[in-house]
Design a protein around this nucleic acid. Structure first.
Lengths: 343, 343
DNA sequence: TATCAACACGAAACCGTTTTCGTAGTTTTT
DNA sequence: AAAAACTACGAAAACGGTTTCGTGTTGATA
């Protein structure tokens, strides 16, 4: 087991001071070419690499980004994460991930932990419980301590910081409008409980599309499913008792479940009913029929979030200008597949 | 913006030395009860938390675990990651993730970066390219530097370290045997190119099951699909030209694609052909019919890997005993769903 | 020859902790 | 009353770097 070599050891071996070694490796012109070459050769031979921890302590920056997300076994979040990791890595940052598991307590705990020097800034999407409780003091806290924060997807209006969101309302409008254009008259909405602001936005877009196209909104055509533990009977009842010829689902699971149920009852997709979902994951691509769905471009969101955070981090060096927080909107796109009638 | 308070500041405010503050907070009996109380009260008031970086430098341990995986937008890897993160968090460790993206170069680069002090040990699954190249010097390197290493799933026989694997051969045997028990006589195998040792193991189990049950092995019934970019025609040709009544697929995507193709051709699942896949992800659960599949229990694998790593990390403190490397096998289980005929 | 700048390097502070060791001042022992 | 033992605290080293500033040695300039 060979430990990593340090400046001190190189200095001792070469009979020079630590400063000389450090400067040589940085190619400082305070040091003679001769000495520099000796030091560099020696360092190369022993594969010297500066210790990140020491650098972090000295520079007061870790080159680590903290990512706090509600879930990791989840297509959207993993795509966002991939974008973050990719961009961060390209710019010399590492990523430490904490999963809040939709729990307020874990979220707070993890952020406090990370804020004790492990990271330079946060990228996060708040947990469901946090949204419910409406308590964001931990976010304010880290911001007051000087940590840049970028929120994505599940953002908080009350918190002033950089944000990356989707055009949920608009894309839901487009999806609904598309079904209306197909000639659908009774379009249902399958959504989750409403404390998720994204679900709310999607519902708004859905309603606006109906209204602007002169289609009556019937609240009985909205099915609200619980966040976890969806019973198949909920959907069966809905399909049995309601009469619809188009459905907008706020995620792909609901969409696939719904398609399976209608098909079982002999209702054909897309001939009898059009189905559009959200999240362009495996399910959408491999279901039968393949699912027309809203691609959220999570990777782009992640890259954008990382870019915004890193920009803040690197500029913090300069003088502290007035806070200018941006909200970037990553446009979702509708991917037309087999569950709708496409032109 | 209030910066975090340090020992030095507390010391100055209270007119005592840094050592006294440090000792007081650790409740050392070198310090008078009176002084301790004062210090503690002050520290609490200002919400003092020791700086992780300084601690890391001092203790020469970061309480960070490095996880290097080929992909993150992948059900199996995310479940493993969830297990790692969960166990690590419960034991006071943070997790920094690097995605190798199946690239040898990125894998090497990331590991070198992490090895410069950012983490205490590695948990990883090697990239496809690394397996192909058969070059593991970077793994040996980090081990020589004293970093404990735990490999999971895609492990390397040549490297001596802790490992967590699945009983791939056995479960493939069981899956195949199950189809034979259903009365299937011509069982196909859909697999990936063979440099993945897991695919190989699965193929072995498949062959052994055929052999031990007196079913002839026909190599024409094996379809090898490329790692990326599967053309639908490959599968269509296979379904068209081969005659089989059961299929074992090494992942759920292949299984779902195959089911879609057979169904399109009027071949019913499971009446005419049984299908079994690997990876109990969303696809398996929501396909039509639902897919009988091998659940890999990734979360357990992750927990086990984290447990093994952390045990090594905590015991390293003691004297350096003889290396005792374990290989833990997490047993996969067959989940019977609608794509097979179950008893 | 005295002065001065350039050169090449080292000492030391600093980042924020922990911990060993030393030492005043007080109390106990003999 | 002198020696020994506590008590309560501080100084300083250490972790591994970076960086400012100082300094001895040159060679050139006046």
């Amino acid at each position: 087991m060979k430990r990593k070599i340090t400046l001190k050891q190189i200095a001792r071996e070469l009979g020079v001071s630590i400063s000389t070694v450090s400067k040589s490796l940085k190619d400082s012109d305070e040091i003679s070419t001769d000495t520099k070459q000796k030091v560099k050769a020696f360092a190369k031979l022993y594969n010297y690499r500066p210790n990140n921890i020491a650098l972090s302590l000295k520079n007061r920056r870790t080159k680590n980004i903290g990512v706090v997300i509600p879930d990791i076994v989840h297509h959207f979040f993993t795509t966002v994460f991939r974008g973050i990791e990719k961009y961060a890595n390209q710019h010399g940052y590492n990523v430490v991930v904490c999963v809040s598991d939709e729990s307020y307590e874990k979220e707070v705990f993890n952020m406090e932990l990370l804020a004790n020097g492990s990271i330079d800034g946060f990228i996060m999407s708040v947990s469901a419980e946090t949204q419910q409780k409406n308590d964001f003091s931990h976010l304010k806290e880290v911001m007051e301590q000087g940590f840049p924060l970028v929120l994505f997807d599940r953002v908080i209006d009350e918190i002033e910081c950089d944000k990356v969101i989707m055009n949920d309302e608009e894309i839901a409008y487009q999806a609904t409008a598309k079904m209306i254009a197909e000639g659908r008259k009774k379009i249902a909405l399958v959504t989750t409980e409403s404390y998720f602001n994204v679900s709310e936005k999607r519902a708004e877009g859905y309603k606006r599309a109906l209204k602007e196209h002169g289609v009556d909104y019937d609240e009985k055509l909205t099915l609200v499913l619980p966040f976890k533990g969806v019973e198949e009977s909920y959907i069966e009842d809905f399909v049995e008792n309601k009469n619809f010829d188009g459905v907008l689902c706020v995620n792909e699971i609901f969409a696939v479940l719904l398609m399976a149920t209608t098909q079982k009852k002999g209702i054909r997709v897309p001939e009898d009913v059009s189905v559009i979902g959200f999240t362009d994951g495996l399910l959408s691509r491999y279901s039968s029929p393949t699912l027309t769905t809203v691609a959220q471009h999570g990777e782009k969101m992640g890259e954008m979030a990382a870019e915004m955070l890193i920009e803040k981090l690197e500029n913090e060096i300069g003088f502290h200008e007035e806070e200018d927080y941006r909200t970037e909107i990553i446009k979702a796109t509708l991917i037309e597949r087999g569950s709708t009638i496409n032109t």
